[in-house]
Design a protein around this nucleic acid. Structure first.
Lengths: 339, 339
DNA sequence: CGGATCATTCAAAGCGATTTCAAATTTCGA
DNA sequence: TCGAAATTTGAAATCGCTTTGAATGATCCG
């Protein structure tokens, strides 16, 4: 069922039918109704490729992911959020996976040259992220999920990682903890650096010296977290509190604490960052987990919204959002044990 | 940079340039080289929309997901697997999320009518899954990840859920367990029904009566699993072993066992199904987790491969793969405690 | 009544590729 | 040397839609 068929069926020209369906004003209301009704009845849908070619818009927004590393639980939540918003606009999400960084750059070039997407989302940037400049050079509109220090205006949405960790650290200090371990993300990623800044700021505000042995940088998997926490718990004096970068990390720390036969919430405290996974609830852990919370799914939804605004003409200078992070105290964080 | 520009730049016709780039035989080797070199130097890429319109192929394969429910850790692993295979073919993955089942049907129709994809992947089917018939009616090639009992030939790839659970159950019976709980997936999904069959078969082979109180059907989240396991552990006599449907489920059972102050691997045993998440390793749990293992990422890669074969003309009757599942014994499963 | 205005409709020209069919040039064998 | 065959190139049609610019009738007003 092509436009041409539909037009013939109606005894009208393609022009009129196209206009009727796309809501142009210069078509008789009676005709418009007749067209709409017939199109619906016959299940007509414009061919996506033809439409894209004619309009120049591709009707898709792109996402390039380093497969193994990035397509984890965080990303799928983010995707779900984006998808929810885009679905109502009938805009597709185009997921491209790559293996290496070099492939990633090539992928951006390819996607740009073939005009497959109208805009892109850029993820977990580094402090200085060349991908940002690349996309600017390529002229593709994009929203950065996170921030970067490149001398260009970009549209971004980020959560207040610095503030979150600063508050968590301060709170633990208030509870008397002095040996607070930070399980942070990969060195070089902006969010990890921001968290480190918050951590150091809180420590220095109380004059508590920073001990590099109490800071780990790694991916957020329970396994790595387990190993890091395990070795930190062997230090003397050992840490009395952990700040875990994600819920996966928290699970690893959990295990390390248990294996060391310590009690979470008493001998050792923990505050974890919670991206709000529907299948891993901080409230229902045992003991329940104190968290710094920010829904990554909501972030996805909002990023989608921002992209739509940009495509509608909004100036990217006006697209900056820094989301506060709530500190939710539960059972896993308590007063530091007596010396 | 359009084909036309490139052709003018070369002093050739679009026809020749197009042929040269697409490897048609009737173009002079010297010319071909010159075209290829110039195209590469100028970074020419055919416009995706135009190419699709001209060829009739969309260069994408589709995936419709019910956002909240389906876009979890399993799916992101599967996606990563698919993406890896498709990337080398320059085929895109089009992710559409929907809220309700009704929306899902509409989404399939829409995608079909607008010819956005060349093929689709269908996921976690029900015993009788109408989506399968819908896709057949719509004439879209697809591969089913799982199986369904609809009277039609479809291409599918599935793991041997029945065999996996049967072996796990038999093994626990061998160890002397008689009260074995099964934390299964949502009722009606084929994989859950298959697992139930394996469970029941193993029980009845030993003449162990089936106790409905020891079977739970729910989504695979740690929270739900925790609640189910918790209430099961309150039964008397209580279950001495658990078969957990996923690693998330296992985490919940873990917690329930600990909260009940029992020891995993001694008073209570557990075998969990492991889809092989890179961030949640059965080997590194404490105690390490016995599992029935099958990489869902590999399944994704393979499904992608099968789709490519189908698009290349392979008969769907020849596309059926049932993957065996390995049983990996570790510390979480041990002999039943003495009465 | 007649010219201007308005409301509708349509034919045809893109969009940027592929592909059919024809033309031009070379090569080859008799 | 000449015609046929093979090789190489190109003009134009096509894919299915949007959109420009023109045409057709209907309506209005002096």
């Amino acid at each position: 069922m092509r436009l041409k068929d539909l037009a013939e069926h109606l005894g009208l020209s393609q022009t009129t039918v196209s206009r009727a369906l796309n809501g142009y004003p210069e078509v008789n209301e009676v005709t418009r109704l007749r067209v709409a009704e017939t199109a619906a009845r016959l299940g007509y849908r414009p061919n996506a490729s033809a439409l894209r070619l004619a309009t120049g818009r591709s009707g898709a927004i792109g996402l390039v992911l380093r497969g193994a590393e990035e397509l984890g639980p965080h990303m799928s939540e983010f995707l779900a959020g984006m998808g929810g918003r885009m679905a109502t606009e009938e805009i597709d999400i185009l997921v491209t996976t790559v293996d290496s960084y070099a492939d990633e750059v090539a992928a951006y070039r390819r996607i740009a040259a073939s005009q497959k997407v109208d805009a892109m989302v850029l993820h977990s940037p580094k402090i200085v992220d060349e991908r940002v400049r690349l996309l600017k050079d390529l002229g593709i509109p994009f929203v950065l999920h996170g921030r970067t220090n490149i001398g260009e205006t970009v549209a971004w949405l980020d959560i207040d990682n610095t503030g979150a960790v600063e508050r968590a650290t301060s709170h633990l200090l208030d509870l008397g903890h002095r040996r607070i371990a930070l399980l942070n993300g990969i060195k070089g990623r902006t969010f990890a650096e921001h968290r480190e800044i918050g951590y150091l700021a809180a420590l220095s505000a109380r004059g508590v010296p920073f001990d590099p042995a109490l800071m780990g940088n790694a991916v957020f998997t329970d396994e790595v977290a387990f190993r890091l926490a395990q070795s930190m718990l062997e230090l003397r004096p050992r840490p009395t509190a952990f700040i875990a970068g994600s819920m996966m990390t928290a699970l690893g720390v959990f295990r390390a604490i248990r294996q060391a036969e310590l009690t979470l919430g008493k001998e050792v405290s923990m505050i974890a960052h919670d991206d709000v996974f529907p299948y891993l609830n901080a409230d229902n852990m045992f003991p329940s987990m104190s968290t710094t919370r920010s829904s990554i799914r909501q972030a996805g939804t909002r990023v989608a919204e921002l992209i739509l605004q940009i495509l509608a003409g909004k100036n990217i200078e006006d697209v900056h959002e820094l989301w506060p992070v709530e500190l939710v105290l539960r059972e896993s964080s308590g007063p530091a044990p007596a010396q």
